[in-house]
Structures are given as structure tokens and as C-alpha cells.
Simulated assay, not measured.
Amino acid sequence: MKNITILGSTGSIGTNALEVIRQKRDEFNVVALSGHTNYKLIIEQIEEFNPKYVSIGTEEGFKAIKEKFPEIKLFLGREGLKQLGQLEETDIILTAVSGVIGIEATVEAIKKGKRIALANKETMVAGGVYIRKLLKEYPKAEIIPVDSEHSALFQSLSAGKRKDVKNLIITASGGSFRGKKREELKDITVADALKHPKWSMGKKITIDSSTLVNKGLEVIEAHELFGIDYDRIKVAVHPQSIVHSLVEYNDNAMIAQLGATDMKLPIQLAFTYPEREESKALDVLDLMRVGALTFEEPDMETFKGLPLAYKAGKIGGTMTAVFNAANEVAVELFMKEKIKFLEIYDIIEKAMENHIPEEVKDLETILKADQNTRNWVYEKYGK
């Protein structure tokens, strides 16, 4: 029996993870859950999975949960996530919260020598250098990526030696506006951006997919997870979202992982690795019904988030934290209709120009760059 902690249990990844666990109750036990504002859903999850520990993001949620479940050890906010990361009982911690708020819990879990099922891009984007250093200090800890693209790379890299890798190829659906040009995106609404053609995801990541910033974050994350130079990390637009990513080796062989557009497969693999197990929770891919698979170059002139990500990654240091923070605030302002869609790119670019990158020596350096960037964007664009 493996004890699982789920950070972000009310989101898309979290609810999919609970479905995986629901089908394997004899293998997995939920020891802790966290949510942000949706305390009504987390109350339902507590009733079903009976965790010992819970963290919630609001005072209202804290009071409601405390009143209904006085026996539960209850935490609040960012400090609560950090506390859940330190639990001795945990075997595997799924980090599925959105934003840099997930970094501290991941750091604590590494120090405890746990397996981290990582679905929080920002951990490696903003803090990858520091996280890699920690993993060397605490060799019992391990990260198994849960993002479909990085899970695919993780699986495909098992086909050969790291020294023989020629390129990593990350696939992208193309998002809500694939094929459109910059002129056509001037008056895009929030509702337009949230209409993803393939994946059902949270609002923030869906907006990121529409700007291709999400793919830029994945490029940086792949560099940090797998140690491959940016010049050898490519992006291919693949509208069918069946090939989740590929590894090209020196002999020109390409090894890919294919699967249904279903996050439960990479989640379960992160829980069971190195074993692969059957489950009623997992969707089946029928290639005969899929038919053609197509690939095309990303439009980096229209979707500037991708080249900006490469630029931030190559500069390194705190610049990737700035890229991430500026995007998070810009997406928030766009969803509040305070800025236009294309201004997301402008904000990221200007925030990067405004920042003098520093070497990442510790967690405080990352969090300081993150907060300073947020303050700068809010001050300049949030009024």
C-alpha cells in the first residue's frame, strides 16, 4: 500500500489522480489533500478518501472543513502546502497546484527522500537549477514527470543512453488559435481562448496553451528535467495530440509515446513506475479510428511566448522565474479583462528586459525574483 499526498486535489490533474486511486484502492491510500478555494469539492473528497491531513487556501474553507471534520489535521494557505510536503507517512506526493506556490512543498518532499509525481511546471521552470542541486544532495528522492509531454519523454528516453540522444521533440496541439496570424488575435476574448480543441484543463493552462507559452514552459522544464541543451529541444505542432512527444537518437531513430488524450495514464505511471498496470480508469487508444497523424512547424512570429521562453532559458539564472511570473500575472490580468490577449507577450518581454538576471543559489533567490516581477507587472499594468 502506497500513501499518496495530492497537492491540488480539486483541479483537473488532482481529480484525475483520485480516479486512478479510486480504481486501485487496494494499492493506494490518500494520506493528504490540498485545495485552494473549492472547499465544497474537497469536503466531498474527504468523505470518500478519508485523509489524515488537509490544506485549504481560504479562511472560509478552513472554517467549513474544521467544523465538519474536527479530527483532521488542517492547514491553511502556502504554509499548509509546505507542511504537507514534509509528511513522513507520504510515499508519493503529486504536485498538481498551479504556480510557484508548489515549489516549497516539492523542496520539502525532496529533503524527505520522497517520490514527487510532478505536474507543476513552475517548479522546474523557476527553480530547476536549485531542484537539481537538491536531488544530488538527497539521492533517495526522485521526480517522475506527470505532464503528458514530459512523461512521454521520460518513457522514450528509456529506449537508449542519454549520451546518444540527438533531440527531444515536444509536441503541441497548437491551442485554440492554431493557424491564426497576429492580426486575427487582436480582439480575442477570454471565452475564445478557453475553447481548447483537445484537452480539458484548468483556465490558466488553457490560456497558456492558446499563447504557446505553455509549450515554452515545457521546453524549459525539459531542459531542467533531462539535461538536454536548448538547441536540441524542438517543438512540433501535432493537432491530433496522440503522439505526446518523441526522442530522436544519434542513429536517427525516433522513439515516441502514443496514447489517448487522457492524463490518467501519466499519473498512474508516476504512481506505479517502474511497473505498468492495467486499470479501468485508463482510456484506450484505437489507432484505426485515429487515422492520420500530422506535424507542422510552430508559428513563432505570431505566438511569441515560445521564442521568449527559449531566450529566457538560454539566459538562465533567475530569468526563467521572471518569464514564468510575468506570464502568470499577465494571464490573470487578461482573464480579468484588464489587458488584451496580445499584451500577454508584451508584458513578458518587457518584464524580461527590466530584469537583471542573478545566479540561482537558493530558494529565496527564486522567490524574490518571482515576487519582484509580480509587483512590477501589477504596478505597471494592473491598475
Rank of each mutant, 00 (worst) to 15 (best):
G14Q: 13
T15W: 02
N16F: 01
E19Q: 14
Q23E: 12
S34V: 11
T37L: 08
L41V: 05
I42T: 14
I43N: 08
E44P: 01
P51Y: 01
K52W: 01
S55Y: 11
G57V: 03
G57W: 04
G57T: 02
E59R: 13
E60H: 10
G61Q: 07
K66I: 04
K68W: 04
I72C: 05
R78D: 13
G80T: 03
L84R: 11
G85Q: 04
Q86S: 15
E89T: 06
I92D: 02
L94N: 03
V97T: 14
I101P: 02
I101Q: 09
V107H: 09
A109M: 08
A117S: 09
L118C: 04
V125R: 00
A126H: 10
R132L: 08
K133Y: 06
L135V: 10
K136F: 11
K140Y: 14
E142R: 14
E149A: 00
L157I: 13
G160V: 07
G160E: 08
R162F: 13
D164F: 09
D164K: 11
V165M: 04
V165L: 10
L168S: 09
I169H: 08
I169E: 13
S176N: 05
T189Y: 09
A193R: 13
K195A: 15
P197T: 06
G202Q: 03
I205H: 07
I207P: 07
I220M: 13
I220H: 06
D231W: 00
D231Y: 02
V235D: 03
V247R: 01
N250S: 10
I255F: 15
G259L: 04
G259S: 07
T261H: 14
K264V: 03
L265E: 12
L265T: 15
P266F: 00
L269T: 08
F271C: 00
F271P: 00
T272C: 11
P274C: 10
A281K: 01
L282F: 02
V284K: 12
T294M: 09
E297V: 11
G305N: 04
L306M: 02
Y310K: 11
I315R: 06
V329Q: 13
L333S: 06
I339H: 03
L342T: 06
D346W: 04
K350L: 14
H355W: 15
V360E: 05
L363R: 05
I366T: 04
I366G: 02
A369N: 06
Q371V: 03
N375F: 07
W376E: 06
